[in-house]
């Protein structure tokens, strides 16, 4: 029961949405509209499940004083504090979501700079890694290296100054060899996704059940 009911719901839902796509009738459109309206609502309830789950995991780590348990506090405190700032704190003492507010401060002065910094640091790591690891050790590695240099120069205006052939060659690499390789990969991924979807709909792939009923 614990396994068969979710499997049946997945199968019915998948089949209905699949068949619906090919039926040009108002009843079919109504089914589609109904689904697209309630699916986000169901998804919103999944958020409650997610918050509950993450809380349980981290509370357990804190209680057990597991390695790096203070990081669990860094997860839980903002998780509950920020909604508190946004929805429960009176506006007179910095509550609400308007600017200025504590919520807005945490978002624009803490979260945005943190995320932007994390991504920006990639430039430093890439430079160091390129210096240490990007070697023309073989013919294939040399092709990769030369291609990378051309595309890198083609992406910046200094490449135009070195000669128009450079950005043109860079664009040619992106528009033709890159396109061909990407299309092959995308097709492979697409067929793989189709096969996985069919396996889920017909109950062959059951990993999403999370081991329920086993």
């Amino acid at each position: 029961m614990k396994r068969n009911v979710p499997l049946m719901i997945a199968m019915l839902g998948g089949l209905i949405m699949m068949i619906q796509y090919f039926i040009p009738h108002q009843a079919s459109q109504d089914v589609f509209d109904y689904y697209t309206e309630w699916a986000p609502l169901v998804g919103s309830f999944a958020l409650i499940l997610g918050v509950g789950s993450i809380t349980r995991v981290h509370v357990h780590k804190i209680r057990a004083k597991a390695p790096n348990w203070p990081f669990s506090l860094a997860v839980l405190i903002p998780l509950y504090l920020i909604p508190l700032f946004a929805f429960f704190l009176p506006a007179s003492i910095g509550g609400g979501t308007e600017n200025p507010s504590l919520f807005d401060f945490m978002y624009s002065r803490v979260q945005i700079p943190i995320q932007a910094t994390m991504f920006s640091m990639l430039a430093f790591y890439i430079a160091s890694a390129a210096f240490r690891a990007f070697r023309a050790k073989s013919a294939l590695a040399t092709v990769l290296l030369v291609t990378a240099v051309i595309v890198m120069l083609a992406q910046v205006p200094i490449g135009d100054l070195l000669g128009r052939w450079l950005p043109d060659t860079g664009l040619w690499i992106l528009r033709f060899p890159n396109l061909a390789a990407k299309r092959a990969i995308e097709l492979g991924v697409g067929f793989g996704m189709l096969a996985t979807c069919l396996k889920i709909i017909f109950g062959v792939e059951r990993g999403w059940l999370g081991g329920a009923g086993e």
Binding site: I126, A127, A130, F131, F134, V149, V156, I158
Partner: peptide, 16 residues
């Protein structure tokens, strides 16, 4: 970006 790309390319060339 122009200068950063040039620097990375120089580093790769010097490394090689």
């Amino acid at each position: 970006q122009s200068l950063a790309h040039i620097l990375i390319i120089l580093l790769v060339i010097l490394g090689n």
